[in-house]
Amino acid sequence: MKKLLVTTGGGDCPGLNAVIRGIVKRASREDDWEVWGSYEALNGLMEEPTRLIKLEEKVVSGIHVLGGTIIGTTNKGNPMSLSEKQPDGSIKKISRIPWIVDRMKSLGFSAVINIGGDGSQAISQAMFEAGMPVVGVPKTIDNDLNSTDFTFGFQTAVQTATDSFDRLVTTASSHHRVMIMEVMGRNAGWIALYTAIAGGAEICLIPEIPYDLEKVVERIKSRYNNGRGFVNIVIAEGAYAKEGSITSSVGEEGRHGIRLGGVCFTLSQQLKDAGIEADIRETVLGHTQRGGTPVAFDRVIASVFGVKAMELVLEEKFGQLVVLQNNDYTSVPIKDAISAYHVVNPSDTLVQAAKGLGISFGD
């Protein structure tokens, strides 16, 4: 039997289980393949003893409706740059990729399907260059991976954000408040942009368009008449003012190094300092956008991604990432997908449409 290893890395994301199920169900149609999962990305493979699980059809039955991932995930400890203490007490960065590839081969694995975002796919490319047959599957709620129209998990995050935004609209109108809702996305404003359009926001602030505070204040004031009125704002966690900086704190060891979050409170204070007298309230959605049952759209593309990834393995087309382009499921070299960061273009049709709907970006 040929052995396939499946890993899920980075932040958790609705649809991960649907990909795993798609891989296993497609592999079950072959007589000479068995599928294994490594717990918590590559950690399960690297530990002694290993923490691996054989993924059979009975194990993945019905998991496509579940959030999270049955094999766990982690965004800590990049194996391409691990800290190792030297005899003299100094710390040296080393890559464990060659060791990981040797470990996989010694355990009899013929190929790997790595499910993850840009950081995880950089690891995929490193393993591929080290001689391991690898296929990648794009995963992130941020939709910031290049070469694919959508990553699975994004639509669920947008739906969660939109549902929350709808609830804030009614309370904002009842109390004549300014409601600021912060969504995830890191340095890409896709979740904020889609939510603002779907929810009918008055203001949408994203990293790609640093906002002019005076323009934001002007828009808010135009919505009030003798203290009557309300404003709903969607702000991406990576947004910042033209004369300001990104709101962040020190994060865990890993590829990001910083933890984004709290920009809604930064904006709230800026508005108060600028003379906005209306009652301002802040809501941080945080990890609610990552959890829960994936919407139908994400279940479909995740399931198809899983099937297509397994078929790439069967066709021995390695070093490839499964993608969705122009409503067609195809693949591109992993190195091309991680060569650029997929962000919102200010001249994008969606941005212009949002402006046509009267949404202000503070520019």
Score class of each variant (00 low, 15 high):
residue 102 D to H: 12
residue 102 D to W: 04
residue 102 D to A: 15
residue 102 D to V: 00
residue 103 R to W: 04
residue 103 R to Y: 02
residue 104 M to W: 02
residue 104 M to P: 02
residue 104 M to Y: 02
residue 105 K to G: 03
residue 105 K to V: 11
residue 105 K to H: 12
residue 105 K to L: 10
residue 106 S to T: 12
residue 107 L to I: 06
residue 107 L to G: 09
residue 107 L to H: 13
residue 108 G to C: 08
residue 108 G to F: 08
residue 109 F to P: 05
residue 109 F to L: 05
residue 109 F to D: 04
residue 110 S to P: 00
residue 110 S to Y: 09
residue 110 S to V: 01
residue 110 S to C: 03
residue 111 A to C: 01
residue 112 V to M: 15
residue 112 V to Y: 00
residue 113 I to H: 06
residue 115 I to H: 04
residue 116 G to V: 06
residue 116 G to A: 15
residue 116 G to Y: 07
residue 117 G to W: 08
residue 117 G to C: 08
residue 118 D to N: 15
residue 118 D to Q: 14
residue 119 G to L: 01
residue 119 G to I: 02
residue 119 G to V: 02
residue 119 G to H: 07
residue 119 G to N: 15
residue 120 S to M: 08
residue 120 S to V: 08
residue 121 Q to F: 01
residue 121 Q to G: 00
residue 121 Q to H: 13
residue 121 Q to I: 03
residue 121 Q to D: 04
residue 122 A to W: 00
residue 122 A to D: 07
residue 122 A to M: 14
residue 123 I to F: 02
residue 123 I to R: 02
residue 125 Q to Y: 09
residue 125 Q to P: 00
residue 127 M to R: 08
residue 127 M to I: 11
residue 127 M to P: 01
residue 127 M to S: 08
residue 127 M to T: 04
residue 127 M to K: 03
residue 127 M to F: 01
residue 128 F to Y: 15
residue 128 F to P: 00
residue 128 F to T: 05
residue 128 F to K: 05
residue 128 F to Q: 09
residue 130 A to G: 09
residue 130 A to R: 06
residue 131 G to D: 10
residue 132 M to N: 01
residue 133 P to H: 12
residue 133 P to C: 05
residue 134 V to R: 01
residue 134 V to M: 07
residue 135 V to A: 11
residue 135 V to N: 09
residue 135 V to S: 07
residue 136 G to Y: 04
residue 136 G to I: 01
residue 137 V to R: 08
residue 137 V to F: 08
residue 137 V to Q: 05
residue 138 P to W: 11
residue 138 P to T: 11
residue 138 P to M: 12
residue 139 K to G: 11
residue 139 K to E: 12
residue 139 K to S: 12
residue 140 T to R: 07
residue 140 T to P: 07
residue 142 D to Q: 07
residue 142 D to N: 14
residue 142 D to S: 13
residue 143 N to D: 11
residue 143 N to V: 06
residue 144 D to E: 09
residue 144 D to S: 09
residue 144 D to I: 06
residue 145 L to H: 10
residue 145 L to P: 05
residue 146 N to E: 14
residue 147 S to F: 07
residue 147 S to Q: 14
residue 147 S to P: 00
residue 148 T to K: 11
residue 148 T to Y: 10
residue 148 T to S: 15
residue 149 D to H: 08
residue 150 F to T: 06
residue 150 F to C: 05
residue 151 T to A: 14
residue 151 T to G: 11
residue 151 T to E: 12
residue 152 F to Q: 10
residue 152 F to I: 09
residue 153 G to D: 11
residue 153 G to A: 11
residue 153 G to H: 04
residue 153 G to C: 11
residue 154 F to T: 09
residue 154 F to I: 07
residue 154 F to S: 07
residue 155 Q to E: 14
residue 155 Q to F: 13
residue 155 Q to W: 10
residue 156 T to E: 09
residue 157 A to N: 09
residue 158 V to W: 04
residue 158 V to Q: 06
residue 159 Q to N: 15
residue 159 Q to T: 14
residue 160 T to W: 07
residue 160 T to A: 14
residue 160 T to M: 13
residue 161 A to G: 12
residue 161 A to L: 09
residue 161 A to P: 05
residue 162 T to A: 15
residue 162 T to I: 03
residue 162 T to P: 00
residue 163 D to C: 04
residue 164 S to E: 12
residue 165 F to S: 07
residue 167 R to C: 02
residue 167 R to V: 03
residue 168 L to Y: 14
residue 168 L to I: 10
residue 168 L to M: 15
residue 168 L to T: 12
residue 169 V to C: 13
residue 169 V to L: 15
residue 169 V to S: 12
residue 169 V to I: 15
residue 170 T to H: 02
